[in-house]
Nucleic acid binder design. Structure first.
Length: 611
DNA sequence: GTAGGGTTAG
């Protein structure tokens, strides 16, 4: 075979992802002694392995190459980028400069900027941009497109626009990247206008807009846009849009919307897509329907780390720690390597059922067995694990010895545990500390007021309240949203304008009487103000989660479960009340609060009173 | 006559 013929065939293997045939050609090259030629053979093979997802073979070939040129480096960068190991790409770049003394060309610039975009490594990207502008390749349109994408992903659509304007022949890629950039920042008018004037519109462009909206948290716009897209008769080819919409449904906890997209997925035959299935697992879990999440997971023929992690985290968040842990066993037996997120879920699971030793062991295994570096979030989970199980000293020790400056969440975890354990003295100390760092999260402030209120330190309570006012937190009041399938109804605390307020009030009063017969005593220590007892009880009575529960009971079909989404953490007294209510009415009530899920059934909650 | 590497939506 002639050289060009062999090279052509290797290239075909990368194009159609045929690693086995590629390997055979590799063997042929070795046998014919062709590998001794210029780096062109190894480079083509390297590229083939990278694009077929055989990173190991690519790296081996790269390491064994006697002579590497810019094409070799570009190929290995692509291999790492494709394996989503963008950090490796960037660290290899410094060896390229130091070891081989090569200067980047346009191919190298493009793959490096691609890595920066994926990592949102803004500073490094800026440096590369500066280097590119003064390089010999500064006219290259592909590098410019990758810069547009980079600025878009870093959240700077105006900078993206400036680069975009300098592109001589703009193509689909440049347009799509820019549209995504505006959508992600919620700059709808500009995004729509770009889509309108774009010469090469495709499903790609629509998807960029929709996924930009979802990732920027403008999910409602993404749904609206999608129905417009369908009305316009655009064919849904490929699972991309659908998985974006599933992610959107998950983040808004819109179960009905998620189910609708799921039906569409099945209708169009995309249920085999790994991305779609993984997104569905997460969506069902976030919408409190763990059973469906589990079903999706079990029906998958191919699963990756994300699939396993999604179901493990889902189980953990719903208080089903045993399932989470046994799924982890199954996962490792299946030969999959857990990642950082998996361990967050696992330690979280342990922390919510008080499995201190197991959690400690997992934390260690993460470092020792898998070589992963614990993040601040992992340490916060560990603090949580110790705090909730009453090991408050150990929790504090971790806080002071961890390699990160503890963030508000870490302190809040300990504070919350102090409140749970009735350790008012430690709690006050933590709260005082938090007062000094200045908390930013409203739920932390509420924890602080709670502990100060318990210690009857009304002055500190009012300091916290002033802080909240100064932070304009008052503008974000607590609300609960009850999901009745076709209808969503939002309640704010103390709501008195609701058309059904009399029925709601009547039902709550009836339930209150029954609860008191069963031994319910209102926990007024969680009410902020210094006021008369009766007034405090009255305040509790009007908490938004109770109004939502009552409305749900009045409006839903008997026997169905009631699903509530609350923007803050559920209050301790409401938690007790809902436990009583679920057993009085014999219904399951699921509350997703700012932190986790609570499945109330038969008088108990899945969180086992830890949250 | 023929040869290698780069950018977009999950």
């Amino acid at each position: 075979m002639h050289h060009f013929r062999i090279l052509y065939r290797i290239k075909q293997c990368s194009k159609f992802q045929l690693p086995v045939q590629g390997k055979n050609l590799h063997a042929h090259v070795i046998k014919s002694g062709l590998d001794l030629q210029a780096p062109i053979y190894p480079n083509t093979l390297l590229d083939m392995y990278g694009k077929c997802g055989h990173l190991k073979d690519a790296v081996q070939l790269f390491d064994e190459m006697p002579e590497r040129d810019l094409a070799s480096w570009a190929s290995i960068f692509t291999a790492y980028n494709q394996a989503e190991l963008h950090k490796c790409t960037l660290s290899l770049f410094s060896s390229m400069l130091s070891r081989d003394g090569l200067q980047p060309d346009h191919f190298i610039f493009a793959s490096l900027i691609n890595a920066c975009a994926s990592l949102a490594a803004f500073r490094l990207g800026l440096q590369l941009h500066a280097q590119f502008v003064v390089s010999l390749f500064s006219d290259d349109d592909v590098v410019k497109s990758s810069l547009v994408d980079f600025y878009a992903k870093c959240g700077f659509p105006d900078r993206a626009r400036r680069v975009f304007d300098s592109i001589v022949s703009k193509n689909v890629v440049s347009w799509t990247s820019l549209i995504y950039g505006y959508a992600r920042m919620g700059r709808k008018d500009e995004a729509f206008e770009l889509l309108r004037v774009m010469p090469c519109k495709s499903l790609y462009s629509w998807t960029a807009l929709i996924s930009g909206f979802v990732q920027g948290g403008h999910c409602v716009d993404s749904f609206r846009l999608f129905s417009e897209l369908r009305r316009g008769g655009v064919d849904i080819e490929g699972p991309f849009v659908l998985s974006s919409l599933i992610v959107g449904s998950a983040s808004l906890a819109m179960l009905e919307m998620g189910k609708q997209v799921h039906r569409l997925v099945m209708g169009l035959g995309y249920e085999c897509s790994l991305y779609v299935s993984n997104a569905l697992i997460d969506m069902y879990a976030k919408c409190s329907d763990v059973l469906s999440a589990e079903k999706i997971f079990r029906n998958m023929t191919k699963r990756d780390v994300v699939s396993w992690t999604s179901i493990i985290v889902g189980m953990a968040q719903h208080g089903r720690a045993d399932e989470a842990l046994s799924l982890y066993n199954e996962m490792t037996l299946a030969g999959l390597k857990p990642n950082e997120v998996t361990f967050t879920g696992l330690i979280y699971a342990c922390s919510h059922v008080g499995l201190v030793n197991k959690g400690r062991q997992l934390f260690k295994s993460m470092v020792v067995d898998y070589g992963l570096t614990p993040s601040l979030q992992h340490y916060t989970c560990l603090v949580d694990l110790y705090s909730r199980s009453g090991h408050l000293e150990e929790a504090e020790k971790v806080l002071y010895s961890m390699p990160f400056k503890p963030d508000e969440a870490a302190w809040a975890a300990l504070l919350s545990a102090c409140i749970q354990a009735g350790k008012n003295k430690t709690g006050v100390r933590i709260a005082d500390h938090l007062l000094q760092i200045g908390p930013e999260d409203p739920s932390t402030c509420i924890l602080m007021s709670n502990i100060f209120a318990r210690a009857t330190m009304w002055e500190s309570v009012s300091t916290v309240r002033k802080m909240m006012a100064a932070m304009e937190l008052k503008k974000k009041p607590g609300y609960s949203c009850v999901d009745l399938g076709k209808e969503n109804q939002v309640f704010y605390a103390g709501e008195t304008m609701h058309p059904m307020k009399d029925e709601i009030f009547g039902l709550l009063k009836e339930l209150d009487a029954e609860m008191r017969k069963r031994g319910y005593v209102p926990d007024t220590s969680l009410v902020l103000h210094d006021m008369e007892l009766q007034e405090k009880e009255r305040q509790l009575f009007w908490h938004s989660e109770r109004l939502a529960v009552a409305y749900g009971l009045l409006k839903s079909a008997p026997g169905t479960s009631i699903r509530i989404l609350k923007n803050l953490r559920i209050c301790g007294d409401c938690h007790t009340v809902i436990k009583f209510i679920c057993s009085i009415v014999g219904r399951e009530i699921v509350v997703r609060d700012a932190n986790r899920f609570h499945h109330f059934k038969d008088g108990v909650c899945s969180c086992r009173d830890f949250w």
